[in-house]
Amino acid sequence: MSDITYTQNGGSNGASVSASPRGLKGATPGYMEADIADYFALLKPRVMSLVIFTGLVGMMIAPGDIHPLTAFTALLCIAVGAGASGALNMWWDADIDAVMDRTVNRPIPKGVVSAQSAAAFGATLSAASVFVMAALVGYVPAALLAFTILFYVVVYTMWLKRATSQNIVIGGLAGALPPAIGWAAVTGGLALEPLVLVAIIFMWTPPHFWALALVRNDDYTRAGVPMLPVVAGPDATRNQILLYSLLLVPLGAMPLVLGFGGVVYAVASIGLGAGFLTLAVNVWRYRTGALAHKSAMRLFGFSIFYLFALFASLLIERMAGLAPFAPFV
């Protein structure tokens, strides 16, 4: 809409980027343009799909049975809770989104959904997802889901993101928890196995995001977000990417050590780990020009495939009924 103006006094002051008519009597507010697809976009569907998948894997590796409808309900709650967190994140960060190329077309900066509507939408879905999880699945998964939403929205979005270059390191815990929620939906508790999966995603998050941040450095600098490349510089970021990758790859082999990863997982974790390390070394080596840009984007793209394929190998083993490899158990 061409007749939309923004008042960008948001973020830590209370995020109130709003679409409003430019003083025209009888003009139509931009948010009247919102269609179902715009509200769906608030849920960050791509992030949601990875969260659903990792939650499903946590559920599948858990011992014990779960009724298919209960499993569906748990995954639905995880998906809606994650989506609601995304909507609340877009509400709070609307001022940042409006000045970043990557996010300028999100529904709030585009002017099709008001910040207030996004906040109400996110808060309603957050409460509903936790309530339904508690009522129909269990209190432990509901508590974990509530913690995940609160951690992402309050600790990461409202506090860490604008305060420290370690924002995505600590905040990454929220995105890492879905396997634990899936496990808790089946067992009603927690164990070492889901926590290993949580640790893998937690360790995966920094190299994944920092690879993107290297490429989008100008975006983050303009928006004033203290991402590591903005604060410490690209070289320090490359060192950190390599360090976290060196920690991630052996951690990816932990399911083998603990005995819940089999032969398929062994092949996947070794092959994918080698690929991840190779690309991280390339990011560390090539520091200027097109090759540096290409290396960072390659690592970012591969990191998504890495996590998906690693968890898919566990899923395949469970679905195919393959016995765990368990060489050290």
């Binding site: 009888g26 003009a27 507010p29 009247m32």
Partner: peptide, 10 residues
């Protein structure tokens, strides 16, 4: 409108 002042035509 949001402030209840200006009528909005859809």
């Amino acid at each position: 409108d949001e402030d209840g002042a200006a009528p909005v035509t859809l």
